[in-house]
Amino acid sequence: MNNPSSPASDSREEPSTAVDPKTSAEVEGPADDELVVRCQQGDTSAYDTLVTRYRGRVYGMIYNMVKSEADAWDLAQEAFIKAWKALPKFEARSSFYTWLYRIAHNVTYDWMRKRKLQAEGEFDETVQRNIDPRARTVPSGVARPDDKLAHTELRVRIEEAIEKLSPDHKAVILLKEVDGHQYNEIAEITGVSIGTVMSRLFYARKKLQSLLKDVYESQ
């Protein structure tokens, strides 16, 4: 198939599918840009507001990549620390949310690379990670609303298939299908061109199709 390199900007716009936390009914308080200005002036309480606003999305994105509560916790902390350090250089060329997501992605990706979590034999059906949707590494003590998901066989199959992707392919498929980012946002978050995003997305989708075809054919 042809794979022409695409410019960073693309004239064919996607309709926005990402959920913007700023438009959620649950979000209150100042807008991100106002909080960022206050943070750049050293206001840590403003940063605490941003952390509260985005910790769920950052932690969720990282957890979906590393599948460990404790590691996702640590990495999310690290992402917010790095974001605080980099705030003086934030120039609002993108939204704070996208910029934060890029930092979280880079922290996670670097950690995964160090932990050598590259998939071995991507089409090797014998390479499996036992994923127990109910597994916890820290006690919760309190029921979490976002954990009240049906632990269906389909979910397990989907997660197992995603775990067989390399970090590059896993990242783009999760950013697109779960987080609802647009192609240009994925390019910015992962630090690659839109052409590379499209290539990775194509490969990831085709691989998931081969791994999950039987699931949908049986339904």
């Binding site: 959920v19 840590t44 605490d48 952390v51 509260t52 910790r55 769920g56 999305r57 932690y59 969720g60 994105m61 957890y63 979906n64 509560e69 996702a72 916790w73 999310a76 902390q77 917010f80 620390i81 820290v138 006690p139 919760s140 003590g141 979490r144 609303p145 976002d146 954990d147 998901l149 049906a150 269906t152 389909l154 979910r155 989907i158 997660e159 999760l174 299908e177 779960v178 987080d179 609802g180 998931l208 199709q209 999950l212 949908y216």
Partner: peptide, 27 residues
């Protein structure tokens, strides 16, 4: 179908365990 199932079964947002501690430790 796959896109719909992924959105339905994989949460994009998760509350960190002990969320208040998350913020206080960060501070």
């Amino acid at each position: 179908r796959l896109s719909g199932d992924m959105k339905a079964t994989i949460p994009a947002e998760r509350t960190p365990p002990f969320a208040d501690f998350f913020n206080s430790q960060l501070q």
